[in-house]
Amino acid sequence: MLMKLSQLSEEQKAILARLKAWLALQLAAEAFRSDAGLQKLCPVGGVSLELKIMQNGAGRGGSAHSSSGRDMAINPAASASSADESAATATKPAATLQLFVKKGNAIAGARNWPQLVLVFPGSEAAIKVLSGGKGAALPLPLSPGAFKTLRFFKKASSRATELLREAQTPDMVRARLLLAATLHGLEAVSGDSYLERRMHIVPDGTVAVRVGQIEFFAAKRGRDIRVMESAQHPDAVLSFSDYQSAIKVLSGKRQAVVALGSGEVKIEGLLPLVQGLFAVLDRLSWYLGVSV
């Protein structure tokens, strides 16, 4: 059933807020990687931005604990695929997400001293603002470049949306954006308590997701999913026959089962792991279908 924002529980709102924030940062990073205009626009010293979502009812800002007591953090730093970062994140406020852009490189989740922290007073505010609506967001400048950073972030976010929409966007770029959004979306919702038992019965392992030149890896460990740019010996491989097929399936224009039946999508290896990801994908669509 399609839900309205007001019908969500606090846990669900917190997850949706972090999902929106995480996707905004990841897509901005992706847009930067594939768009020369954005790269030029980036100040020489780079930009770094932090999104901080205060949790309703939680004593300390940014701590996001689910009703089960489990830390529901997206652990953005961990997705920058460094083990020590991942360990360090455990002590960070949960809903703190960063984008760091410098010298042709953009990493969502890097841990740095940001130039600007954009503070959302609660999940609902974050959801509304990050969905393009009205809501409270407090910019906290921490260095002189702060407002350039904010401008750059806004530009990068809207560029990501344009790249997804514009007809002249190369298929490869569009496929990469969609794939990144989907996989990072899985990262953000995998800790949902709705998925707890499912994540328990799905085996741990790594899935390589491939189309043309693009390759991502999604590693499932316990209740978490992490997206990585490289991994060895995946336990399963999900591949699309070409960029167009990936775009159609990932944008919902072609049913995944039909694409599977016609050979446009292929799954090899540890099937229960991939099926588990599909269940998380269903949950992701549920969140993305919430009307704000």
């Binding site: 089962v257 599977l260 039946g261 050979g263 292929k266 799954i267």
Partner: peptide, 12 residues
């Protein structure tokens, strides 16, 4: 479901 077999090699 076809996905439980190996699509492209098995009939549906």
């Amino acid at each position: 479901s076809p996905g439980f077999l190996v699509p492209g090699h098995f009939p549906y």
